[in-house]
């Protein structure tokens, strides 16, 4: 049974990389079910994250957000800060797709704080870029400017010409 779980996970990932997102969801749901049977929280967290990603490409953003939230709860429970940051970043982008910019800002700020704690310059730059855009969408131009300037500083530091 544990091997079946791992195989469903691998199958889901392969279907996802082939852009067969409905099949990917079916496989990752099976992976999640088996992870729950064994109380395998790390596998459960991976399945929620993989499901969230697949729902994004199916255009089901609300469902994606629900799955990313479960992944975030588990990342916190497992005390994995890098994975917690990734879940916050995913939620920030998902709420931007849903045009809920206040929630997007909440999650991008959470991502920013963790990226700073971990010394992750690429993550910090992405967070500032995202925050600048969300504040622009809300008409908070002073805040947008602040984050755009910080994004520029970090891009110069990391040599990111793009």
């Amino acid at each position: 049974r544990p091997a079946q779980g791992r195989t469903y996970g691998n199958l889901g990932n392969t279907q996802y990389l082939l852009s067969n997102f409905c099949n990917a969801v079916d496989s990752h749901k099976m992976r999640l079910l088996i992870a729950k049977e064994f109380g395998d929280l790390a596998a459960e967290r991976r399945a929620y994250c993989n499901l969230g990603n697949a729902y994004i490409f199916l255009g089901e953003f609300e469902k994606a957000a629900e799955h990313y939230k479960r992944a975030l709860q588990l990342a916190r429970h497992l005390r994995d800060r890098a994975v917690e940051a990734q879940a916050c970043y995913s939620l920030g982008n998902t709420y931007t797709l849903l045009q809920d910019y206040e929630r997007a800002i909440d999650y991008h700020l959470k991502h920013l704080i963790i990226a700073q704690d971990l010394g992750d310059k690429v993550g910090e730059g992405r967070a500032c870029w995202s925050l600048g855009n969300a504040h622009t969408a809300l008409g908070n131009h002073d805040q947008a400017m602040h984050f755009a300037e910080r994004h520029l500083e970090i891009s110069n530091e990391t040599g990111d010409r793009c």
Partner: peptide, 26 residues
């Protein structure tokens, strides 16, 4: 889409480009 919408999407688009190749490996 408005200009603002286009601006708003560019950081999300970049995320989605990365996401397409990102899987949580067993």
């Amino acid at each position: 889409p408005t200009r603002m919408h286009v601006i708003q999407v560019d950081s999300v688009q970049r995320w989605m480009e990365d996401l397409r190749h990102m899987t949580e490996v067993e």
